[in-house]
Every structure is written in structure tokens, then in C-alpha cells.
Computed example of a mutant assay.
Amino acid sequence: MNVSEHDRTSGAGFSGAVGLVLARPARLLGIEPFFMEFIAGIEERLAERGLSVLLHVVATQEAEIDAYRRWAAQGLVDTVVVVNRTVDDKRLPVLRELGLPAVLVGAGSDDADGTDAAAGGGGPAMPAVRTDDAGPVREALAHLLDLGHRRIARVSGPANLLHTRARTAALVEGCRAVGVEPVVVEGDYSDEAGAKLTTALLRRPEPPTAILYDNDVMAVAGLGAAKEMGVAVPERLSLIAWDDSTLCRLASPPLTTMSVDVHQYGVLVAESVLELIDGRPVAERWSPTARCVPRGSTAPCAVPSTTV
């Protein structure tokens, strides 16, 4: 569809809103900077065209689907942004059924046609802003291996998320290539999970000398848990967070991170949204690449690989 400027100002067949549903505990939004920066990037670009983001926070993917049905029935949004792609994602076939245009966020190169298997395959391609989740993990792992670490753990996000699986697969593949068997435990992005899982890892008979976390909140909480157990960072334990933030930079020591320009990520998503709304071909876009930024939480391993 091509929406004219007159339609935008008159409201004829045009809501002026872009929908974004976050299926996650609402309390996490108050402590996790990622989505606030991401949404700010989207809103900044959309505001130039007089558009806004309609944000809805729900607890489950089923509730997210219900929101899409309400929005479509009431004409509340012109398109939606779909985040946190999952295995057997039920949202895409529903969006097709509703005829609700969507931009997928975080689809990887293995989903090159924009069609998810859960949608039955063969459906019309959905535009996507793709993300390389494996490359940054390999870079962070190389940093740890260069420092001599061989007992490596990962505190992941929910295992059913596609980006979680891609990151875990990259870590496992990279570790096994050098004869290392990593330990992977599943968290939920909360500080409680970060602290609890870090404590459990450090109580193992052969505790890790390095831990990679799937977000900044779990990493900062893991740092606090290590301190409470008397495990010095980085002298005895190196930590790396995914997502850079003020939390990471103000931690003591400052956390090494896999850093990405989240604000620009949001701007790129908004560009795809605008092309979709205007009825123009939506260009293939990739999110800014995450890069390993070494700081004070990583150091050479002080524990020989053969030592318990």
C-alpha cells in the first residue's frame, strides 16, 4: 500500500502507529536498557514522518498474538515490528492470516527468504532486519582463548529464542574446535537469574574461569555474585556481557562486552517499517555488528587447564 501525506494528516485508512509487543516480564524493562534504546531509535526516525510506536507489554506469546488480533480488528496500527523470534514461532502465520504487515527483527542469514518454517513455508516473504549472532560470539571466544581460558561457561537467555540458539551453537562449535567442552545454563535476562546461575557455576567441582552472559543485567548480577563468594574478577574469573550499557561501564571492574549500537539498530528497523508502509520494496538490512570491547573484567587465566 502507498500512503499519501494527505492520508497521514486526515487519518483516512491510516492509524499513524507502528505496533511493538514485548512478551517479557514488565519489571525487566525497568532494569534492562536494551529495549529502551532500541525503541528510542525507532521512534526518532518515525517521528520525522509523524508516526509513533504503540508499545504493549505482555507475559506470553499467546497474549502477544491476542494483541495482534485486537489491533487488526480495530485498525489501531499500520504495521508491527516482531522481535524475539522463537522456534516454532506461532506469530507469523497469524500475522499472515490477519493481513497485518510486519517487519521481522533478528532473523539470521539462515532465514534468508523471510519465511519461517512455523508459517508453513512458502508464504509471502516478510521483510527482516537481520542479525549476525554467531560472529560476535566467535570474537568473544577468541578473546578468551587468547587469554588462556579453557573452562568456559555461558549464561544464556531463553533457549527457545532463535538468537539464543545461534549464539549457543557458535560457542559450542568454537569451543569444540579447540578441544573444549563449554557449560551452558539457561537464564531469563533477570538479575536474579544472573546471580543464581553464576553462583551455581562457581560451586561446580571445576568452576569456569570465564563466563559469557546473554545480556548486561545478568552479567552485572553475576559479577556481584562472584564478589560475594570471594571470587576475584578478573584475577580468577573473566566475565563478558552481551549488550553494552552504562551498567557495564560503571561496574567495578568495568565489564568486557559484546557491544552493538542499539539506537542505530532501532533506526534501521524504522527505515524498513517506513518502506513497508509506503508500499516500496523493503531493502535487506543487517543490524550493526556487535564487537567485543575488552575492559577490566577479562584477564589472562590464572588456572592451568589441567588444574581442578
Results as ranks from 00 to 15, higher is better:
201 L>A: 05
81 V>D: 01
18 V>R: 00
190 S>M: 05
85 R>V: 14
123 G>I: 13
14 F>K: 00
267 V>G: 08
159 A>Y: 03
76 L>C: 13
132 D>T: 04
5 E>K: 02
139 E>F: 03
94 V>I: 14
80 V>Q: 00
257 T>D: 11
38 F>R: 01
131 T>H: 11
63 A>P: 12
227 K>E: 14
72 A>M: 11
161 L>Q: 10
286 W>Q: 12
158 P>N: 03
201 L>Y: 06
273 V>S: 00
93 P>N: 01
263 H>D: 05
266 G>W: 03
177 A>W: 03
37 E>K: 05
263 H>P: 06
303 V>D: 04
119 A>N: 10
304 P>D: 05
220 V>R: 04
247 L>C: 07
58 V>K: 00
222 G>T: 08
219 A>P: 10
130 R>F: 06
31 I>L: 11
118 A>H: 07
131 T>P: 09
115 T>C: 15
58 V>S: 09
6 H>Y: 09
205 P>V: 07
235 E>D: 15
32 E>F: 00
218 M>K: 02
86 T>E: 14
172 V>F: 02
156 S>F: 04
93 P>R: 00
147 L>I: 09
92 L>I: 15
245 S>L: 04
269 V>P: 08
15 S>G: 07
172 V>M: 05
145 L>G: 14
198 T>K: 03
5 E>A: 13
227 K>S: 13
104 L>C: 12
109 S>M: 10
193 A>C: 08
243 D>R: 01
270 A>H: 02
152 I>K: 01
15 S>L: 04
143 H>T: 14
123 G>A: 15
14 F>I: 09
302 A>T: 15
200 A>T: 13
32 E>W: 00
115 T>V: 15
218 M>P: 11
26 A>K: 02
109 S>I: 14
88 D>H: 10
201 L>S: 03
173 E>K: 01
114 G>M: 02
